[in-house]
Design a protein around this nucleic acid. Sequence first.
DNA 1: CGCTTGCTTGGAGCGCACTCAAGGGTTTTA
DNA 2: TAAAACCCTTGAGTGCGCTCCAAGCAAGCG
Lengths: 157, 157
Amino acid sequence: MTVTETETTAEGGADSCAGPRQGNRRPDGADKYTISEVVALTGLTAHTLRWYERIGLMPHIDRSHTGQRRYSNRDLDWLDLVGKLRLTGMPVADMVRYAELVRSGDDTYTERFELLRQTREDVLTRIAELQGTLAVLDRKLGFYADAGRALASERTG
Amino acid sequence: MTVTETETTAEGGADSCAGPRQGNRRPDGADKYTISEVVALTGLTAHTLRWYERIGLMPHIDRSHTGQRRYSNRDLDWLDLVGKLRLTGMPVADMVRYAELVRSGDDTYTERFELLRQTREDVLTRIAELQGTLAVLDRKLGFYADAGRALASERTG
DNA sequence: CGCTTGCTTGGAGCGCACTCAAGGGTTTTA
DNA sequence: TAAAACCCTTGAGTGCGCTCCAAGCAAGCG
């Protein structure tokens, strides 16, 4: 029987805020990370990292002599970008498209530019939407606060 | 044979921006809308409206003598709120929870308040995240713009 | 040597939020 | 009266983004 893969929480704690942890990276000549190290650094699961590779969202990752993945600082940079794009709500398929453009070289600059520009637009729209909802929430919260005060004064008065 | 349900685009055009269209509402005594009118007003599909009802996200909707739904202005207000909450990324299950609280009356104020307050927090976090990604996008877009200029001057110089 | 730990693969499964199908009823128009 | 245009219900299907499983290989340790 084999031990099934254990997916421990990133950084061994209740840290759910998965930001770019560039602090504990190795210098650029010695940048070889196992998949579990990348799990710790990015907050993604090993499953997700392998899946990203399968669907073409990652460049070809270096392998050790036994076939294990060895990620580089460059790969971590890419994963940081992917994380950012994911936060924008960009579909994974679009990210794959962007990755393909990057792989196919320098004559895809304009298309990449356009993709990022469009994403930027979407983000601005999204922020505006969220600020709209914030206004509604604040209005409702004000109402509940008032109701709470009314209830309180009902008891005291 | 029966005609299968046709889901025409809201407002009969390419309008994908589904905002609150409070303009074409009827006054509060004559507020009886068929499901297709609500489709036009909200941008949701009839399927989704019925599904919202099934899962308990809607209050009991009035029916005509033949069993067809007749939405009121109040229902439209609720749908507007649901739309806002959906934009925040709140899971449907949480919205259902909120709907249950509203239905179960006045002694759930504090819990509702807490739910909305938490949502507000989440929205603020989300906006901050998006502004972070915006910074990254702008940096990358600057890079691509520079690359474009370099390519152009390569040709002209 | 056996045991544990960590990694590999392909493919199946899951949760969410819809989305659609099948089969039928009612109302309006021709 | 017939066809078209609405609407109804239950239950199954879809697409996305993971998430997990089963089986197995390689390295380190007592």
